[in-house]
């Protein structure tokens, strides 16, 4: 079963927020929020990728990794949605 767009965005943001150390608790994220300015440095990006892989049960392919992907919430979502929205390993039935 695939997620709705809202479900996906909410789950993505829930995984993303702890990696944005300059984002005030409860502050809104908008599609053009600049993730670097909010604390997503290279170490945070690695941690985010690992958490995304764990939360969605997939391995992110190398060809999706680009500097642009981590620039804004919108770019992050559009880059990784195709792979993260696949039915996760945990959801798959044998």
């Amino acid at each position: 079963m695939s997620m709705t767009t809202d479900d996906f965005s909410q789950k993505l943001q829930a995984v993303l927020r702890p990696h944005l150390r300059f984002l005030e608790p409860g502050a809104a994220l908008t599609p053009d929020s600049a993730l670097g300015a909010l604390g997503l440095d290279s170490i945070a990006a690695v941690n985010l990728l690992l958490d995304l892989e764990q939360a969605f049960g997939v391995q992110i392919p190398d060809d999706l990794l680009s500097a642009e992907a981590f620039e804004t919430l919108a770019s992050l979502e559009s880059t990784f949605r195709p792979v993260l929205e696949q039915p996760s390993a945990r959801d798959r039935t044998p």
Partner: peptide, 18 residues
């Protein structure tokens, strides 16, 4: 396994740096 994946992603993300 996780440590290896972290190392791998670390190198790949570092490669993205301008």
């Amino acid at each position: 396994k996780e440590a290896r994946r972290r190392y791998e992603l670390g190198l790949k993300v570092r490669r993205l740096r301008k």
